[in-house]
């Protein structure tokens, strides 16, 4: 490297100096995993706070709602997986339908949390003897605090995930993904599964563990 050949090379805008595509995807993948690793500390801190503040107790929440919401979210992960496979093997309709279903189920989950559990509209109602709307309010001391913080932070991620799914769906319809190049789909899928896995930890921590407080 002793002989210095060129001096200050002129910047040429037309020439892409990014990484070669294969290497870029490798970098992307690693970046995404690092992001998930980082987010683990976010959700971990929330979980830890739950254990500090609630200890071995939990608030009264509708068990049916929790179970249904969890199942909906897990089901959406399954369709997301199908969507990714569709994209990977060039099966356009499998991809599009899977993505749309995943987004729909995600939205359903989101609605269940925000409209039913949080009861932002202050409604009341029964379905098959199950109370539809939650009673916990943000003002209910640490029970309200932790519950709204954990579900809220998770719902925010769900919302982001839905937006991402819709973006890949929209682009997918325009044929922008190929079996060789569909990093966007892969990334969305990884992210979506990650958000689901987080819920797998949150659900028992919020709904199942500990005995009922008062």
């Amino acid at each position: 490297m002793s002989a210095v050949t060129t001096t200050h090379a002129p910047a040429h805008a037309e020439h892409e100096h990014g990484l070669p595509p294969a290497q870029q995807v490798r970098a992307n993948r690693l970046g995404l995993w690092l992001f998930c690793f980082s987010e683990m500390f976010l959700f971990g801190a929330l979980l830890a706070s739950r254990f500090v503040l609630w200890g071995n107790t939990r608030p009264e929440l509708s068990q049916v709602m929790g179970l249904v919401a969890t199942s909906v979210l897990l089901l959406s992960s399954f369709f997301m997986y199908r969507a990714e496979m569709g994209a990977a093997y060039g099966d356009r309709s499998k991809f599009l339908n899977g993505a749309l279903l995943a987004a729909a189920l995600g939205t359903l989950f989101f609605i269940m949390v925000v409209v039913l559990e949080w009861n932002v509209f202050g409604l009341e109602g029964n379905l098959f003897g199950v109370e539809l709307f939650g009673h916990l309010t943000p003002a209910d001391g640490v029970y309200g605090g932790i519950f709204f913080a954990m579900t809220g932070m998770h719902a925010l991620h769900v919302l982001t995930g839905i937006a991402l799914i819709l973006i890949i769906w929209w682009n997918g319809r325009r044929g922008r993904f190929t079996p060789e190049s569909h990093w966007g789909v892969e990334a969305t899928a990884i992210y979506w599964h990650f958000v689901d896995v987080v819920w797998v930890f949150f659900y028992p921590a919020l709904y199942l563990m500990g005995h009922l407080a008062h």
Partner: peptide, 10 residues
């Protein structure tokens, strides 16, 4: 929301 203020259990 309540996390830290002991009057609400925080």
């Amino acid at each position: 929301l309540n996390f830290f203020d002991p009057t609400g259990g925080g």
